[in-house]
């Protein structure tokens, strides 16, 4: 069973984020980076499936040179090889164009499953996996909590709202977007870390892919800003009777809800 895992490298949770000069994203200088959290769970799920069914786990990641670190970290945990999509033209792509690049890059690969995290911790579009499936013309499902491989099919448990779950079956190959918490991701061992540098990464740029139309974003971030404080909390003081009277007064005249 060959599995492609799409990993995204995002600013680490400990990073102090600053809005960049043109106000359209965070300043990436001096940030530390990590693998997007839901993608870590997707990777773990892929490694477990590989342990049961054999095959290989291929990492696919779009981004500048720093992204190689994320791919190597996945190698240290047990992934076999990587595809690194690196080109100035791939920077700040929207979900549709990111999916286009990935779809083109994995065209020659034979795979049974593509796993991605449910969404990224930075933009949080939750779109790349879904659009990728559409572009590849294969089925997909999202918010996956459990995976069972059947003969030529996959049965998955999906998380719905309000504590509800849904079981569905899809024919393979398919794209699944994985929810955080589906498993306990493993630690990389020193043996894995030492072996990671020997595993191959294929780096592809725009000229290596047959993308056809130019990569024009359909979606753009106009403005990023720190939320402005607009609410004010008032503390009412006094005996319960006095506070209740004050509260009624405020609900009547300030909030105008009674």
């Amino acid at each position: 069973m060959n599995i492609i895992v799409c990993l995204k490298q995002v600013p680490s949770r400990e990073s102090i984020l600053r809005v960049n000069a043109d106000g359209t994203w965070v300043d990436e200088q001096d940030l530390s980076w990590e693998i997007n959290e839901p993608d870590v769970y997707a990777l773990e799920e892929a490694l477990r499936l590989k342990e049961r069914f054999g095959g290989e786990v291929i990492i696919c990641s779009v981004g500048p040179a720093r992204v190689q670190q994320a791919i190597r970290e996945a190698f240290a945990k047990g992934a076999d090889r990587g595809i690194h999509l690196n080109d100035p033209a791939f920077e700040r792509l929207d979900a549709y164009n990111t999916a286009r690049v990935i779809a083109e890059a994995i065209k020659g690969e034979s795979y049974d499953l593509i796993l991605t995290g449910l969404q990224s911790d930075d933009f949080g579009f939750a779109q790349t996996g879904v659009i990728l499936a559409e572009l590849l013309g294969i089925p997909h499902t999202t918010i996956v909590m459990e995976i069972h491989i059947l003969d030529g099919k996959v049965k998955v448990k999906r998380e719905l709202e309000a504590g509800w779950f849904q079981w569905i079956e899809l024919p393979l190959p398919a794209v699944l977007t994985i929810q955080s918490g589906i498993n306990h991701p493993r630690y990389a061992t020193l043996k894995g870390i030492m072996g990671a540098k020997k595993k191959p990464i294929r780096t592809l740029g725009r000229d290596d892919l047959h993308l056809g139309e130019a990569l024009l974003n359909l979606q753009q971030v106009e403005k990023v800003y720190i939320p402005q404080k607009t609410k004010e909390t008032q503390l009412l003081e006094g005996s319960p009777e006095e506070v209740a009277a004050q509260l009624v007064e405020k609900l009547k005249h300030e909030a105008k809800v009674i």
Binding site: A76, Y187, T189, L190
Partner: peptide
């Protein structure tokens, strides 16, 4: 170096969990 930093990150996660 990246490898040893990653080892530290892993043992840290181990300790937390």
């Amino acid at each position: 170096g990246k490898e040893k930093e990653f080892l530290r990150q892993n043992i840290r996660e181990f300790v937390e969990r």
